[in-house]
C-alpha cells in the first residue's frame, strides 16, 4: 500500500444469504487504485462488479476484509459515518442519472453541499460554476426532464464533482446514452482524469473500457485480469 493509493482493498468478501444458500458475490478480492488513475471494472452480469461498485462507493459494507479509502479504513463504519464518507470523498455518476426531477439542474448539483452544511448562497454559486465547467452554463435553471440524456449525465457529473471528492464512481455512465453522447461523456471523464481526478467506472461496453487507463475484469466474484492500457492522450 503506497501513500498515493486512494483505494486499497484487502481480502474483501461479500456474501448474500438467499434463503438457505449463501451467495459469494465477492470472493477474497485484492487490489488498489492509485491517485489519478482511471479504472474500468468490467465483466459479465453476475460477476460481482455491481457489488464491488457498492462497496467501493461506501453504499454497502463487505462481509469481511479491509477497505482503505483515502487512507482511512471504512469497512467497519456505521450507516451515518458511511453517509458522511460518501458525501465528502465520493462523487457518484449513475447509469440512469439519478437526478431529482422536481428541482433545477443547479439545485441538483448543489444537493451534496446541502448535506455538507454549506450555506445556500455559496452552494448555488459553486453549483453554477460546476455546471459551466461541464458546458451547461446556459441550462442551470432547467429541470432534468427538460434536458437530453447527455445533458443530464453532465449535470450528474457536475454533481459528482461539486464536493471535490477523492474519487469519482461511475456506474455504467454511458449505459443509457447514444454513441455520440457516450463519447462526449467519456471526453469529460478523460479531461477530469487529466486534471488529476481518480475515476473508477463500471461498464460492460468494451469500447468504453478501452478509453480508460486500466481494465479490471471480474468473473464469479474474483478479479480475473488487471490490464494497464497505454494511450496516446496520456502524456
Amino acid at each position: 500500500m503506497s501513500m498515493a493509493d486512494v483505494i486499497v482493498l484487502e481480502d474483501i468478501v461479500k456474501q448474500f444469504t438467499m434463503g438457505d444458500t449463501i451467495l459469494q458475490a465477492l470472493d477474497h478480492v485484492n487490489f488498489s487504485v492509485e491517485e489519478g488513475d482511471f479504472v474500468a471494472i468490467m465483466g459479465p452480469s453476475g460477476s460481482g462488479k455491481s457489488t464491488m461498485m457498492n462497496i467501493l462507493g461506501c453504499l454497502d459494507r463487505p462481509t469481511s476484509g479491509k477497505y482503505y479509502l483515502d487512507g482511512k479504513e471504512v469497512a467497519g463504519l456505521s450507516d451515518d459515518e458511511l453517509a458522511r464518507t460518501r458525501n465528502a470523498k465520493i462523487g457518484f455518476v449513475f447509469q440512469n442519472f439519478n437526478l431529482l426531477s422536481k428541482i433545477s439542474a443547479q439545485q441538483n448539483v448543489a444537493l451534496p453541499l446541502v448535506y455538507a452544511g454549506v450555506p445556500e448562497e455559496e452552494r448555488m454559486e459553486r453549483a453554477r460554476k460546476a455546471l459551466e465547467d461541464v458546458g451547461l452554463g446556459d441550462r442551470i435553471g432547467h429541470k432534468p426532464n427538460e434536458l437530453s440524456g447527455g445533458q443530464r449525465q453532465r449535470v450528474a457529473i457536475a454533481r459528482a464533482l461539486i464536493n471535490n471528492p477523492a474519487i469519482v464512481m461511475a456506474d455504467e455512465p454511458t449505459g443509457n446514452l447514444d454513441t455520440k453522447s457516450s463519447y462526449e461523456i467519456m471526453e469529460i471523464f478523460k479531461k477530469l482524469n487529466a486534471m488529476g481526478k481518480t475515476i473508477v467506472m463500471v461498464t460492460h461496453e468494451p469500447d468504453i473500457g478501452q478509453q480508460t487507463k486500466r481494465i479490471l475484469v471480474m468473473r464469479d466474484g474474483h478479479l480475473n485480469s488487471d490490464e494497464r492500457l497505454v494511450h496516446d492522450y496520456v502524456q
Binding site: 450507516d79 453517509a83 439519478n98 448535506y115
Partner: peptide
C-alpha cells in the same frame, strides 16, 4: 436513495 447516496444521514 439518491439523497442517501449523496450523503444524507438518518
Amino acid at each position: 436513495g439518491i439523497r442517501k447516496a449523496l450523503g444524507a444521514t438518518y
